[in-house]
């Protein structure tokens, strides 16, 4: 990774573990993951359903739903720990420093209030702006996210907007008070394919302009390829591989990532048959010993069934795989 030593990471997640206490014992949904994000950087988090990617996002913004809880590790924003803040302090960070974009724009907006009112409310919660200043800002924001005739649209209600337009409103809400970090959880999954690229471009463009760090959570490798600078591949609550998008896509190190890439059709290449990974991701109740991917891994050997691999630096990326143990450079 090319981290300039003079820049401090915007967000640091260290050894994060998220647990769900249940009647049959404690389930570990996210197990000991670490990553960081630089200002203005777009990190893609990709994985299957249940890999723990959305929970990671929820933990960062402090909205894990009980009984889910952060059991270990730390989350720091601009060097300040935010995982153990009292509710009220964390509330002031939400929206102010960390914005969120959710999956379904049709249900993310309150149907009973005009979008202007929802924007003004968000702005006034976090700033001292007057009603009219906040309203002017709301109109600006709507223009920034590409909504035509914002002066007129600002007084309309969510049901008067199409899905793509509503997601633009959601983006405007997420960026309303210039947060440092935006968490976009499946921001395009509910949208038409034709709209998806526009929305992704918009998120990327706005965040680059404002030097906002972004976590894009998705199960769609295409979204990552289009938007992210770096990607973290999650599997069964752990990071399998993390590194620059180009390297991970072109030269996947972890057998899981490799399988994942093989399952994406490419235009212009005559692929006979897409590869598929046999089996499915283990349930949280029976994650195997050693590497969580070992039952499905074509390259698994003895050690994979005994010890859990740490992330090992391989060229530009880091992969949690014993295959690369010899190559690891310690120190």
């Amino acid at each position: 990774m090319a981290i300039q030593s003079d820049t401090k990471p915007l967000l640091e997640v260290k050894n994060l573990r998220i647990e769900f206490p249940t009647r049959r014992g404690v389930l570990t949904a996210v197990d000991d993951i670490s990553f960081d994000i630089m200002p203005g950087e777009v990190l893609g988090v990709v994985g299957e359903s249940g890999a723990g990617k959305s929970l990671t996002g929820a933990a960062v913004i402090g909205l894990l739903e009980p009984p889910g809880r952060i059991a270990a590790g730390s989350i720091s924003l601009e060097g300040q720990r935010i995982d153990n803040l009292p509710y009220e302090k964390m509330r002031q960070i939400r929206g102010r420093k960390i914005g969120a974009i959710f999956q379904d724009p049709l249900t993310s907006l309150n149907p009973l209030y005009s979008i202007g009112r929802q924007l003004v409310e968000t702005i006034q919660t976090h700033t001292d702006m007057s009603e009219s200043q906040a309203r002017r800002r709301a109109v600006e924001l709507l223009a920034d996210v590409g909504i035509p005739a914002p002066e007129r649209r600002v007084d309309q209600y969510p049901h008067q907007f199409s899905g793509g337009m509503r997601q633009r409103v959601v983006i405007a809400l997420a960026l309303a008070v210039n947060p440092k970090l935006v968490i976009a959880d499946e921001p395009t999954t509910a949208l038409d394919v034709s709209i998806q690229a526009q929305i992704l471009d918009l998120i990327r463009k706005l965040c680059k302009e404002r030097n906002v760090g972004v976590i894009i959570i998705t199960h769609d490798m295409g979204v990552i390829a289009e938007t992210a600078d770096r990607v973290a591949v999650m599997y069964a609550g752990r990071i399998a591989e993390i590194g620059p998008v180009r390297d991970v896509i072109k030269h996947a190190k972890h057998p899981y990532t490799h399988g994942l890439m093989g399952s994406i059709p490419t235009i212009g290449h005559d692929t006979e048959k897409l590869t598929q990974i046999d089996g499915s991701m283990p349930r949280l109740t029976d994650i195997p010993r050693g590497c969580a991917f070992n039952p499905r891994c074509p390259k698994a050997f003895d050690k994979c069934f005994v010890d859990r691999p740490e992330l090992i630096q391989v060229e530009q990326t880091r992969a949690a795989c014993w295959l690369y143990e010899k190559e690891a450079v310690h120190g």
Partner: peptide, 8 residues
């Protein structure tokens, strides 16, 4: 959830 995420 979104209203909470906006810090209201």
């Amino acid at each position: 959830k979104f209203a909470r995420a906006r810090g209201l």
